[in-house]
Amino acid sequence: MKNRAIISTPDAPEAIGPYSQAVKVGNTVWLSGQIPLVPATMEIVEGDISAQAEQVFRNLAAVAEAAGGDLNKAVKLNISLTDMNDFAAVNEVMARFLEQPYPARACVQVAALPRGVAIEVEAILAL
Rank of each mutant, 00 (worst) to 15 (best):
K2R: 14
R4G: 05
A5M: 09
I6F: 11
I6P: 04
P10I: 12
D11A: 14
D11L: 12
A12F: 02
E14A: 12
E14L: 14
A15E: 02
Q21F: 14
K24L: 00
K24Q: 08
V25H: 03
G26F: 01
T28D: 05
T28P: 09
W30A: 14
L31I: 01
G33F: 00
G33N: 03
Q34N: 08
I35E: 11
I35A: 04
P36K: 07
L37Q: 03
V38F: 08
V38L: 09
P39Q: 08
A40L: 12
A40Q: 14
M42P: 13
E43L: 14
E43H: 12
I44Q: 11
V45P: 01
V45K: 10
E46V: 10
G47P: 09
A53P: 05
E54V: 00
Q55W: 08
V56I: 02
F57I: 04
F57M: 02
R58L: 11
R58V: 07
A62R: 05
A62S: 06
A64V: 07
A64S: 09
E65T: 11
A66M: 03
A66S: 01
A66W: 01
G68T: 06
G68C: 04
G69N: 07
D70Q: 05
L71F: 01
L71H: 05
L71R: 08
A74Y: 06
K76T: 15
L77D: 02
N78W: 10
I79D: 00
I79Q: 02
T82E: 00
D83I: 15
M84S: 13
M84H: 14
M84K: 08
D86P: 06
N91D: 15
E92K: 15
V93K: 07
V93S: 06
R96P: 09
F97I: 04
F97G: 07
F97H: 04
F97R: 00
F97C: 05
L98G: 05
Q100E: 11
Y102P: 09
Y102C: 04
A104H: 02
R105I: 15
C107K: 03
Q109V: 11
V110A: 04
V110K: 12
A111L: 13
P114R: 00
R115E: 15
R115Y: 13
V117E: 05
A118S: 14
A118Y: 01
A118H: 07
I119N: 02
I119K: 02
I119E: 01
I119M: 01
V121A: 00
E122T: 15
I124H: 04
L125R: 10
L125F: 07
A126P: 10
A126T: 15
L127K: 05
L127M: 13
